[in-house]
Amino acid sequence: MKWLKTYPERCIGCEQCMETCSELWFREKSKLLSRIRISANEVGFSLNACNQCGKCIEICPVGALARDANGIVQLDKDKCVGCMMCVAFCPTSSIFFSSTKGVEPFKCIACGACTKGCPTEALEIVEEYN
């Protein structure tokens, strides 16, 4: 399974990853459109991106969420009815939505674009297979 591994202890909160992500997928710089979220906490920063656990697959009532050949949980926009149940039931709160961008939520699909611009190597695409 391929997923975006995060190293919060290395994060400096520059939010470059969020900009890269929103630009890639929505063609605009907006923290609210990023599939990875950085927030400050008591000790530094927390990084929130989908770990591809797949819990959302069983929550989705229309089968819009499924794993691809790399084990990445992908959302089929044609099937999605925008019910938001996956957003609420995600164990790590890693599925996001924006009412300005249509009915479907969005999530990290481990494309790796954000890892390239991270100045502190706080993000890494890893592949783990059992």
Binding site: V81, G82, M84, V87, A88, F89, F97, S99
Partner: peptide
């Protein structure tokens, strides 16, 4: 069909309120 094409006045509020209840249920 898609709800977003059905002339809903404020889709954002609908999503926010719905999400709040989903989380309560969760």
């Amino acid at each position: 069909w898609s709800n977003i094409k059905q002339g809903i006045k404020d889709f954002g509020i609908l999503q926010e309120v719905g999400l709040k209840l989903h989380k309560e249920i969760h």
